[in-house]
Amino acid sequence: MSLFVFPRWANKTRQLAGLFLSTAPIYVIGLVWYGASPQTTDVGFQPKQPVPYSHQLHAGQMGIDCRYCHNTVEKAAHAAIPPTATCMNCHSKVWTTSPKLAPVRDSFASGLPVEWLKVHDLPDYAYFNHSAHVTRGVGCVTCHDRIDQMDEVYQAKPLSMGWCLDCHRHPEPNLRPPSEVTNMTWKAPNGDPEAYGAKLRAENHINPPTDCSTCHR
């Protein structure tokens, strides 16, 4: 086998090559770190839903409480998407012929579900329980951001494990009285969410676990 000899012009590019080779790994790692992180891939996910349901209209303008539709959130792990009947509670009387609501009316008549696309999706091996958070005083806005201003729901927070752990390790800034969980504009009364949260934490014996089995089963 013959020996490989670099061509003469490689002498001139030696320094540039050295610079490139030493900075390339940093670049690649940085690219993956930020490009593949949930902040990049998941935040802003806004799938097209079969029915153009606007939270901005219903929850924002009309002020319907989150729990009217997502009524299982205080009792169960899933904050269930409401059954078609919940929509029809109003829409059998209001906007009864709107073409935008045709899929809803079809669903109610046929018994087949409206096929919503999940926006806030965790991996299958991570188990999140809404009731544990909502009953303890973590507001909807903390994880879902200003849903009441979204015409089409998008994921505003990364919902990554690190993001969850940030709160589990330091819950004070995110705590509020359980009666205010659906209040999108609630602020700590004394202007110091840290101190107010600390008070709530002590009063309500809030101890967010950081064990793996909390979420990973």
């Binding site: 096929e115 696309l117 999940k118 999706d121």
Partner: peptide, 23 residues
């Protein structure tokens, strides 16, 4: 597809009283 596959949510059309999906 850098995000994992999309999941659909298929609620009932009429949920009987006392039934909580996912329990």
């Amino acid at each position: 597809g850098c995000r994992w596959h999309e999941d659909k949510i298929l609620p009932m059309t009429r949920r009987p009283e006392g039934v909580i999906p996912g329990t």
